[in-house]
Design a binder for these strands. Sequence first.
RNA 1: AGGGAGUUAGCUCAGUUGGUAGAGCGCCACCCUUACAAGGUGGAUGUCGCAGGUUCGAAUCCUGUACUCCCUACCA
Length: 915
Amino acid sequence: MLQEISDTNFAKQYNPQIVEAKIYEKWLAKNCFKAEDVSSKPPFAIILPPPNVTGFLHLGHALDHTIQDVLVRWKRMSGFNTVWIPGTDHAGISTQSVVEKKLAQEGILRTELGREKFVAKVWEWKEQYGDRIVNQMQRLGNSCDWDRLTFTLDEGVSKAVRKVFVSLYEKKMIYRGMKLVNWSPKLETAISDIEVEYKDVKGKLYHLAYPLEDGSGELIVATTRPETMLGDTAVAVHPEDLRYQAWIGKMLVLPITGRKIPIIADNYVDQTFGSGAVKITPAHDFNDYEMGLRHNLPMINILNTNGTITAGYGEFSGLKSQEARKKIVEVLEASAVIKNIENHAHSVGHCSKTGVIAEPFLSEQWFLKMSELASPAITQVENGTTNFIPENWSKTYMHWMQNIQDWCISRQLWWGHRIPVWTCKDCTHVIVSEIDPTHCSKCNSKNIIQDPDVLDTWFSSALWPFSTLGWPNDTQALKTFYPSDVLVTGHDIIFFWVARMMMQGLEFNKDVPFKTIYIHGLIRDSQGRKMSKSLGNSIDPVEMIDQVGADALRIALMSQLNTGKDLKFSDQRLETYRNFMNKIWNATRFAFGSADLDYVAKIDFNHTTASANLSVFDKWIVYRLGEVIDRVNDCLSQYKFSDAVHELYAFLWHDFCDWYLEFSKPTLYATEEPNLKQTSAVAQNNHDTITQRQTTSLILFQTLGRALKLMHPFIPFITEELFEKLPIKDSEMLVTSTYPTLKNNQDWLTMGHQEAWQEVELLKQVITALRNIRGENSIPLGLEIAANLVPQDKKSLAILTQHKALLIKFCKLGELSFEPRPNLAKCAVTPLQLSGASVNVIVPLEGIVDIDEEIKRIKKAIEKVSKDINLLSNKLKNENFIKNAPEDLVEIDKNLLKEAEIKFRTLQDSLNRLS
RNA sequence: AGGGAGUUAGCUCAGUUGGUAGAGCGCCACCCUUACAAGGUGGAUGUCGCAGGUUCGAAUCCUGUACUCCCUACCA
């Protein structure tokens, strides 16, 4: 009985909206993502790079998370005790600046609120928005073990942070020092290099004249930041610059301040730039700072923490640097110190959180010595304990590790891990402790105060691979899941995060934190630009999920992911895979509508049908599925995600839907019309028809079930939904069922045969040839044509004869014969050659169509085959080719030539008859 | 400036150890054929950036070169 398929569960179009939420609930309810700390299964662990707790998911996260989820789901189904640990980051500077801005809008200043109240406000903010990003991750389908959700300010993680800090401090690897750092005058904190954004700015180049102390002349220096002259402590020239040989060592008088500064010589100076003399401000420029250290120059800080000029500079004091610049230029112009002003474009670092110009600022900070930590981390990558995929990124990693600088770990923020250092007000004793001290350990005074700074966010991130597993406690989770298997992240944070995790993992757990580092590209827009809020080209993945569903988004992303290169996102691709979801949906819908469900429901998912009862199409699709199972597992184990997607797409759409379902239709529809003429060739009597229908129904669902399993890691929602509906399966839930492999499908796959593949291939080609003749000659589908198929070998004849009814139906034939005909005039001819088999496809055109189109078609075919003949015969004439090429290749080419020549003659004959 | 990567169909990209160039989208034509028009069938499209070299044979290996992009640094 043909089933009614207007069931609302099987709408004509797949609607992810009603499916996805329901399925995710079910996964959670059944604890499908839960990992065991103790298990007999081998472990597989991935730690999620924690996104900003109050942030939004962006498309980059969607890519990053989908890769992890694909791996996790694949491994979970492959029998591993799989854990994917989710977490969120407090994102110190980011979150603090957002909340600060928000409060400012309400007229509340952070500084007025005070530390304690402000931090409380941030916690409120976190409580309000903390769930949002988790919800977004769930919309995407992330199969994380949510019971293990960790926040970087959780008690356990905080304990880990303290322990690490104290330990490194005691090893004298953490020290306090006065250095030049990037500074945000708005946030009044040191910021990391990653938080500095360089932008091209149209500025001016000011040429200033500094007079010599002895009055014998003046030296012109060029600067883009004239206000920094207040802090100049030297002017430098190149030691080999002939113009200035006599000047080196002399003293200049700094205008305005009247301070005396020396002329020094340094190789850093570019003789060709400006006047070849450069003013040196060690406290406000990184190069000048280095030079200052080299020449032992005084470092004069002229800025307050908020970026204004310090006291003692008269009318300039208290001005912001831009205002100070204006004022100083006025003064210098009036006194003719400025000789010239020209336009000058240069790039200027800005604070990425607030947009203000970042100032190099001399301040006292905490630093972590890196060289000792770096060396084992270098070794472990060199010897392959941890390897990068793609391998190339190890170069980037090495380059940074080998040139590593000490890390400024302190931030003048309130939101974050407070530095566990206290100073005794009475005896200046410094206490560094894991637990908050109540009194000075030296003088017992209770008058102790904690360092006001917090740690750089990346400090806690660096501990993530083990702090999430309970370290410093000696937990079972740590034993089972450390080191984790794969770290998945973008190449933009190899330095800031990956390298630091490597170092801390090795330092505190004596083992690498992960065995494989999979680096993916960054997502760009369709024009190749970075996605950013300011460009307005960033895409909210949740918006896309609303439109096309999470599955379509996930598989679209994965289809584009191959080499670790950056990828351009296009919504065309999204549509392609939205359609693909619909195709899968409808293929299943067809199966339900056409197969013998009552029969299928009684049979086992792994039941193997005897070969005699299988149609060649059944054998063929099983054979193809075997190939796909093998390739997809292979692709996944090599992180070739796009290859896996293309393999699955081609199988499901082209093999399964385009051919297998179409081939199966006559059989599946057979009981509906038992007297249908076509079925008589397939089955001799009604009994056989029913048996064949049952068998095909079974293979249909067995194949579909396995295909759903194979696709599940990429498109978890729709596959779970459809799997749930299947009349047969080997597991209640797809997510926790077994991923197909050649091994676990060994018996079932014996139903497939290579010969079946060849047979079906022949039929496909004959059908395609007939369709081509029809199409190219514009023969309408309503017009039945006569076809004469002339096989050149017995095997082909047998195959074609057996499938006569099917060929008639597929190609809308009025008549089909297999005997060669004497009169071939006015016929369309297509000679087919494929591995041993050979068939001439002939369609009489007399009285049906104008033969001009056919002449065109044949000429085109002749042209093509002539090219082949030329190429092959030239190749085979070449003695060196015969001599050097492998024998089998020469043999293949000889056969190809033979076939091409036969083809050519047949086509030429037919052309002669036509014209 | 140093390091890395790319250049293949109109677009986005595949192309494993050298052996007659592939996919998806788009395009053209014809079809509402009882799973799907988010569909079906057929078709067109490439001097593989350029120039050399190695080889019987190069998109693939080597050298040079042009252009693009990314990272780090710098831009007085």
